[in-house]
Design a protein around this nucleic acid. Structure first.
Length: 174
DNA sequence: TAAGTGCGTCGTT
DNA sequence: AACGACGCACTTA
């Protein structure tokens, strides 16, 4: 792999300590590209080996940290870091874009999200796209429920989904 | 009513 | 060609 290509794909991985454990944020040159839930076992995030963290990334990380902490407390996000969603297909990016519009404490059903992107019939595909969300919590896929206010699914584990919704004051059926 | 079954539909692998 | 983080319509009890 050429140096040039390696640089282009450079990714920084930085930890975020929260009351719910240590999340790990990933940054590309374009912005926040991934966010991982805390590992079961205290797995330390891999810090960039010896390379200084660009100030730009440091700033993004500060924004990510604030946004994450706010959402974990059921509070709205004041400021987003730039998001790099380029891993997603066109369809997935459209879905994730819709998710970003769901305000704290609000929810949509998978069907309603499908409506938003203009194809009610794509419900199941929407569910799949939600599951592929690389930046959970900040891109609030936990605010998408099945019809009838039922919980639906969550790739990070339903416990997380319930916890996040509870903190935002969302009532579930079941 | 509540719980269970079947199936359309669409993007992804 | 098969599979979902769905949503209906349609059984049953």
């Amino acid at each position: 792999m050429s140096v040039e290509r390696e640089l282009k794909e450079q990714v920084w991985e930085l930890p975020i300590d929260t009351r719910d454990g240590e999340f790990v944020a990933q940054y590309s040159q374009k912005g926040l590209s991934g966010l991982n839930f805390p590992r079961k076992q205290g797995h330390l995030a891999r810090l960039p080996n010896g390379k200084p963290i660009p100030s730009e990334i440091h700033r993004w990380h500060q924004q990510t940290t604030n946004a994450l902490v706010n959402t974990l407390s059921g509070k709205p996000i004041k400021e987003f870091p730039p998001l790099d969603l380029s891993v997603g297909t066109n369809f997935q990016q459209r879905v994730w874009q819709v998710l970003k519009t769901i305000a704290c404490g609000n929810t949509l059903s998978y069907g309603e999200v499908a409506d938003e992107i203009g194809d009610r019939k794509a419900v199941r595909a929407v569910g799949r796209a939600c599951g592929a969300n690389p930046i959970p919590v900040l891109i609030p896929c936990h605010r998408v429920l099945a019809s009838n206010q039922k919980i639906g699914g969550f790739s990070g584990g339903l416990d997380w989904k319930r916890k996040l919704l509870a903190r935002e004051g969302v009532l579930l059926l079941e």
